[in-house]
Computed example of a mutant assay.
Amino acid sequence: MAPSIQAPPVQLFNGAAGPVPQSHLLPEFSMKDKVVVVSGGGRGLGLVQAEALIEAGAVVHCIDILPDPSLDPTSEFAVVAARAKKELNSHLTYHRVDVTEEPQVSEVFEKVAAKEGRLDGCLVAAGINYESPALEYSPEQVDRMLRINVKGAFLTAQGAARIMVRFGTPGSICLIASMSGTIANRGMFASLYNTSKAGVMQMARSLAAEWGVHGIRVNTLSPGYCTTQMLLNLFEQYPERKAQWPTENMLQRFSEPKEYRGAALFLLSDASSFMTGSDLRIDGGHAAW
């Protein structure tokens, strides 16, 4: 059996000078006084993005199916929540939610709306992957993959848009897709995952077309291979990929969660105010060969 590869700790951004003062930001990138919900924000890529949004001035509510990580003061989530309060004059709140259950999703958005009185953005990062030859997927596996990655993404975007429409304010929704929504990964049996992410990309285009009249923008962010726990789990079963996959993009390496901080801020802020129905693919050139 291949040796277990431990995930590196989430690399949180802690510049020596702390957050960049708002007066020194390009104003269109500022999230000051804006409220954002991040799904899949209990750890990993979602949590890294949540911290970036807080640094830009936002108030962030994270939803995830994990047991409440804020109860453990040593958890990555608790570290970011403490920093939000003590250093950044904001707050990071956790809500345990199953994004595939519409009543739970609606309830959490109602709570955020009641507490904050507004909703300006939503980052939809909750998702799963597991690998199997297409001939061997069970009906239960098919249902679970599509339920979380597609249904969960739709219900989260829908919940956010309902609040934005009610308040009559423009907003931005970013769905985390994948380069796997554009290409079929060489050497990886991921037909269902790839299908789900292609579905997320088409979902964003369709929602953008429908909600543009309300001033709601909907885009996707498509990462390449990134050192999240999801990727590292694959290396335990297929250790040869750790050396092979970096050679398949133009930068010859994996990406890290922190390298998507700026992209999420761009898509959720006014810096992308004329961008909707689009996909921002950041894959080290993998799909550009």
Rank of each mutant, 00 (worst) to 15 (best):
D283F: 05
N185G: 06
R144M: 04
D143L: 10
M164N: 04
G181I: 03
M201R: 08
A114Q: 12
S273V: 12
G152V: 04
V108G: 12
S269P: 05
A184H: 10
G40T: 07
S30M: 11
L265S: 04
S255F: 02
V79D: 04
Q237D: 11
P223Q: 14
F167E: 08
N219F: 04
A209N: 06
C122L: 12
E101C: 11
P9L: 03
M31E: 08
P8N: 06
G40Q: 02
S255L: 00
E136Q: 02
E131G: 07
M203F: 12
T182A: 12
M275Q: 12
R96G: 10
A208G: 13
I63S: 11
I5T: 05
G15F: 15
F235M: 01
L221P: 01
I282C: 14
G187L: 08
P69L: 05
S272G: 07
P246F: 07
P133W: 03
Q252W: 03
L251C: 11
R83A: 14
L267P: 05
L280A: 09
H286G: 03
R205F: 04
T169C: 08
R43C: 05
A82K: 15
I176Q: 00
Y193T: 00
P9H: 05
N185V: 13
P139V: 02
T169Y: 06
E76W: 07
A56K: 05
K258I: 06
P223I: 15
L155W: 09
E107D: 15
V124F: 07
S39H: 11
V108P: 10
T93Q: 11
A288E: 13
F77V: 02
V142Q: 01
G127V: 00
E110N: 15
S90F: 14
R166K: 15
Y225W: 04
P19G: 08
A204R: 04
L119T: 07
L92M: 14
V36C: 15
V142P: 00
M230L: 05
H286A: 05
D33M: 09
F189Y: 14
P73H: 05
N233T: 07
F254E: 01
N129I: 06
T227M: 15
T93L: 09
G40E: 03
A134W: 09
M230Q: 03
G187E: 06
V48T: 05
Q237A: 06
G199N: 08
C174A: 10
F235S: 00
K85Y: 04
P139G: 00
P19E: 08
R217G: 02
R205E: 12
P257N: 06
Y225I: 00
V10F: 00
V35E: 00
